[in-house]
Amino acid sequence: ATNIVSKVKWYNSTKNFGFIEQDNGGKDVFVHKSAVDAAGLHSLEEGQDVIFDLEEKQGKAYAVNLRIK
Score class of each variant (00 low, 15 high):
residue 1 A to H: 13
residue 1 A to V: 12
residue 1 A to R: 15
residue 1 A to S: 12
residue 1 A to M: 14
residue 1 A to F: 12
residue 2 T to E: 10
residue 2 T to S: 11
residue 2 T to C: 12
residue 2 T to K: 14
residue 3 N to W: 05
residue 3 N to P: 07
residue 3 N to I: 06
residue 3 N to L: 06
residue 3 N to M: 07
residue 4 I to P: 05
residue 4 I to L: 11
residue 4 I to K: 09
residue 4 I to W: 06
residue 4 I to T: 06
residue 4 I to M: 10
residue 5 V to P: 09
residue 5 V to K: 12
residue 5 V to W: 11
residue 5 V to C: 13
residue 5 V to L: 12
residue 5 V to A: 12
residue 5 V to T: 12
residue 6 S to A: 15
residue 6 S to K: 04
residue 6 S to G: 15
residue 6 S to P: 02
residue 6 S to R: 06
residue 6 S to E: 02
residue 6 S to T: 05
residue 6 S to Y: 06
residue 7 K to Q: 06
residue 7 K to Y: 06
residue 7 K to A: 04
residue 7 K to P: 02
residue 7 K to T: 08
residue 7 K to V: 09
residue 8 V to D: 01
residue 8 V to F: 00
residue 8 V to R: 00
residue 8 V to S: 01
residue 8 V to G: 01
residue 8 V to K: 00
residue 9 K to H: 07
residue 9 K to T: 03
residue 9 K to R: 10
residue 9 K to I: 06
residue 9 K to Y: 03
residue 9 K to A: 04
residue 10 W to T: 02
residue 10 W to M: 04
residue 10 W to I: 03
residue 10 W to A: 01
residue 11 Y to G: 01
residue 11 Y to E: 01
residue 11 Y to Q: 01
residue 11 Y to K: 00
residue 12 N to Y: 05
residue 12 N to M: 07
residue 12 N to W: 08
residue 12 N to D: 12
residue 12 N to R: 09
residue 12 N to S: 14
residue 13 S to G: 10
residue 13 S to E: 11
residue 13 S to R: 13
residue 13 S to K: 14
residue 13 S to Y: 11
residue 14 T to G: 11
residue 14 T to Y: 12
residue 14 T to A: 13
residue 14 T to K: 14
residue 14 T to L: 13
residue 15 K to G: 05
residue 15 K to S: 07
residue 15 K to L: 15
residue 15 K to D: 04
residue 15 K to P: 01
residue 16 N to C: 12
residue 16 N to K: 14
residue 16 N to S: 10
residue 16 N to M: 11
residue 17 F to W: 07
residue 17 F to E: 02
residue 17 F to H: 06
residue 17 F to R: 01
residue 18 G to M: 01
residue 18 G to K: 01
residue 18 G to T: 02
residue 18 G to E: 00
residue 18 G to S: 00
residue 19 F to S: 02
residue 19 F to I: 04
residue 19 F to K: 02
residue 19 F to M: 05
residue 19 F to D: 01
residue 19 F to H: 02
residue 19 F to C: 04
residue 19 F to G: 01
residue 20 I to N: 01
residue 20 I to R: 00
residue 20 I to C: 02
residue 20 I to H: 01
residue 20 I to Q: 00
residue 21 E to K: 14
residue 21 E to Y: 15
residue 21 E to Q: 14
residue 21 E to D: 08
residue 21 E to C: 15
residue 21 E to V: 14
residue 21 E to T: 14
residue 22 Q to V: 13
residue 22 Q to S: 15
residue 22 Q to C: 14
residue 22 Q to P: 14
residue 23 D to Y: 15
residue 23 D to M: 15
residue 23 D to P: 15
residue 23 D to I: 15
residue 23 D to E: 14
residue 23 D to L: 15
residue 24 N to W: 11
residue 24 N to H: 12
residue 24 N to G: 13
residue 24 N to T: 10
residue 25 G to L: 09
residue 25 G to T: 08
residue 25 G to K: 09
residue 25 G to F: 09
residue 26 G to Y: 10
residue 26 G to A: 11
residue 26 G to S: 10
residue 26 G to D: 10
residue 26 G to C: 09
residue 26 G to Q: 12
residue 26 G to P: 07
residue 27 K to R: 12
residue 27 K to P: 14
residue 28 D to K: 04
residue 28 D to F: 04
residue 28 D to M: 07
residue 28 D to N: 08
residue 28 D to I: 05
residue 29 V to M: 04
residue 29 V to N: 02
residue 29 V to S: 03
residue 29 V to W: 08
residue 29 V to A: 05
residue 29 V to C: 03
residue 29 V to E: 00
residue 30 F to R: 02
residue 30 F to D: 01
residue 30 F to W: 04
residue 30 F to V: 03
residue 31 V to F: 11
residue 31 V to M: 04
residue 31 V to K: 00
residue 31 V to T: 01
residue 31 V to P: 02
residue 32 H to E: 04
residue 32 H to V: 03
residue 32 H to K: 03
residue 32 H to F: 05
residue 32 H to A: 05
residue 33 K to V: 08
residue 33 K to S: 09
residue 33 K to L: 05
residue 33 K to R: 11
residue 34 S to D: 07
residue 34 S to W: 10
residue 34 S to A: 08
residue 34 S to Y: 09
residue 34 S to M: 11
residue 34 S to V: 09
residue 34 S to F: 11
residue 35 A to Q: 10
residue 35 A to I: 07
residue 35 A to W: 05
residue 35 A to F: 05
residue 36 V to D: 00
residue 36 V to M: 08
residue 36 V to R: 01
residue 37 D to Y: 15
residue 37 D to A: 14
residue 37 D to E: 14
residue 37 D to H: 14
residue 37 D to L: 15
residue 37 D to N: 14
residue 38 A to V: 08
residue 38 A to G: 07
residue 38 A to D: 08
residue 38 A to T: 08
residue 39 A to Y: 03
residue 39 A to P: 02
residue 39 A to T: 06
residue 40 G to S: 06
residue 40 G to P: 01
residue 40 G to V: 04
residue 40 G to N: 09
residue 41 L to C: 08
residue 41 L to H: 07
residue 41 L to A: 08
residue 42 H to V: 13
residue 42 H to D: 13
residue 42 H to A: 13
residue 42 H to E: 12
residue 42 H to Q: 12
residue 42 H to W: 11
residue 43 S to C: 14
residue 43 S to R: 12
residue 43 S to I: 11
residue 43 S to Q: 11
residue 44 L to D: 00
residue 44 L to C: 02
residue 44 L to Q: 01
residue 44 L to S: 00
residue 45 E to F: 15
residue 45 E to W: 15
residue 45 E to D: 10
residue 45 E to C: 14
residue 46 E to A: 15
residue 46 E to L: 11
residue 47 G to E: 04
residue 47 G to I: 02
residue 47 G to C: 08
residue 47 G to Q: 06
residue 47 G to K: 06
residue 48 Q to W: 13
residue 48 Q to H: 06
residue 49 D to W: 15
residue 49 D to K: 12
residue 49 D to M: 15
residue 50 V to L: 10
residue 50 V to T: 02
residue 50 V to I: 14
residue 50 V to F: 03
residue 50 V to M: 05
residue 50 V to A: 03
residue 51 I to M: 12
residue 51 I to K: 05
residue 51 I to Q: 08
residue 51 I to H: 05
residue 51 I to P: 00
residue 51 I to Y: 07
residue 51 I to N: 03
residue 51 I to V: 11
residue 52 F to W: 09
residue 52 F to Q: 00
residue 52 F to R: 00
residue 53 D to S: 04
residue 53 D to A: 03
residue 54 L to M: 10
residue 54 L to N: 02
residue 54 L to Y: 07
residue 54 L to W: 05
residue 54 L to D: 00
residue 55 E to M: 14
residue 55 E to S: 09
residue 56 E to L: 14
residue 56 E to N: 11
residue 56 E to Q: 12
residue 56 E to H: 14
residue 56 E to V: 15
residue 57 K to M: 10
residue 57 K to C: 13
residue 57 K to I: 11
residue 57 K to E: 08
residue 58 Q to I: 07
residue 58 Q to W: 14
residue 58 Q to Y: 14
residue 58 Q to F: 14
residue 59 G to Y: 05
residue 59 G to P: 00
residue 59 G to R: 05
residue 59 G to L: 05
residue 60 K to I: 08
residue 60 K to P: 04
residue 60 K to S: 07
residue 60 K to M: 10
residue 60 K to N: 08
residue 61 A to K: 14
residue 61 A to M: 14
residue 61 A to V: 14
residue 62 Y to M: 10
residue 62 Y to F: 11
residue 62 Y to I: 08
residue 62 Y to R: 10
residue 62 Y to W: 12
residue 62 Y to T: 08
residue 63 A to K: 02
residue 63 A to D: 04
residue 63 A to F: 02
residue 64 V to W: 06
residue 64 V to R: 06
residue 64 V to S: 07
residue 64 V to D: 04
residue 65 N to T: 02
residue 65 N to E: 03
residue 65 N to I: 03
residue 65 N to K: 06
residue 65 N to C: 05
residue 66 L to K: 00
residue 66 L to R: 00
residue 66 L to C: 03
residue 66 L to G: 00
residue 66 L to I: 13
residue 66 L to E: 02
residue 67 R to F: 05
residue 67 R to L: 05
residue 67 R to S: 05
residue 67 R to V: 08
residue 67 R to A: 05
residue 68 I to V: 13
residue 68 I to E: 07
residue 68 I to P: 08
residue 68 I to W: 07
residue 68 I to H: 06
residue 68 I to A: 09
residue 68 I to F: 10
residue 69 K to M: 14
residue 69 K to T: 13
residue 69 K to C: 13
